[in-house]
């Protein structure tokens, strides 16, 4: 069952055409990974889904409803969460304030909060600290926690492992596996090994177009294809 489908999405940023017509179906459940070289348009794809850039022409359909051109806030209310590459943490707010802002009613759902504590124990430890004082990994945990503090159908995550220590990357992978039990994750990732370990499906974006899409297992087995599309040496 398709959760999100992008149809011929073209996005210009200023005078530059970045996406030249991205067409992609994201099935419900599991982790869907977007791969591709730097500057290929992966981040722009996420931002266009979120309504932070307006794709013209092209359309975005979420759960069967057209959400193209909607206000970012309204897209978010439809059940899409976004973790940007820079994490978008509010540094002057405490960990608690960062999270409570993301709740629908200004109250925590206690069982859900317990689950988040279990996934990311550091957040409970630094609960009343201002977010700027957290380490990079802790900030990333906070950003992901903020995206799942309310049940969301789709979570867009942009390069969560960039610059993180291996131990934290492992914890992150664990967290994503658990989250993807109840929600769909659309993940932009440069770290192919990480992507391979958690992705169920994947697509490669190259020069603003979808160059390849399919199950992760097939792609992981085809080293020649990887070489061609990602210029990976390993």
């Amino acid at each position: 069952m398709t959760l999100l489908s992008l149809n011929n999405m073209k996005t210009d940023i200023g005078q530059y055409a970045v996406l030249h017509g991205v067409t992609l179906d994201i099935p419900e459940g599991g982790v869907f990974v977007l791969l591709g070289r730097n500057g290929a348009g992966k981040t722009t794809t996420l931002r266009s889904i979120m309504g932070l850039w307006n794709p013209t022409p092209g359309s975005v359909t979420f759960r069967g409803a057209d959400i193209t051109g909607l206000h970012t806030a309204d897209i978010a209310r439809k059940g899409i969460a976004y973790v940007p590459e820079n994490m978008g943490i509010f540094g002057g707010l405490t960990v608690e304030e960062n999270l409570i802002l993301a709740t629908d009613k200004g109250r925590f759902d206690q069982p859900r909060l317990k689950r988040i504590y279990a996934l990311f124990p550091a957040l409970e430890q630094f609960w009343t600290k201002q977010a700027w004082s957290l380490s990079g990994g802790q900030k990333q945990m906070l950003a992901v926690a903020r995206a799942i503090i309310e049940p969301r159908a789709l979570i867009l995550i942009d390069e969560p492992t960039k610059g993180l220590a291996p131990s934290i990357v492992a914890a992150m992978a664990e967290a994503f596996r658990e989250i993807s039990q109840s929600a769909t994750i659309l993940l932009v990732e440069q770290n192919f090994h990480f992507a391979k370990s958690i992705g169920r499906d994947m697509a490669v974006i190259d020069d603003g177009l979808v160059a390849h899409a399919g199950p992760m297992a097939d792609f992981a087995a085809d080293t020649e294809l990887q070489e061609r599309l990602l210029s990976l040496s390993a």
Partner: peptide
Amino acid sequence: VENREMVEALGFR
């Protein structure tokens, strides 16, 4: 004040 875009992405107009 810190990040307008993120406030929108959390669902606030």
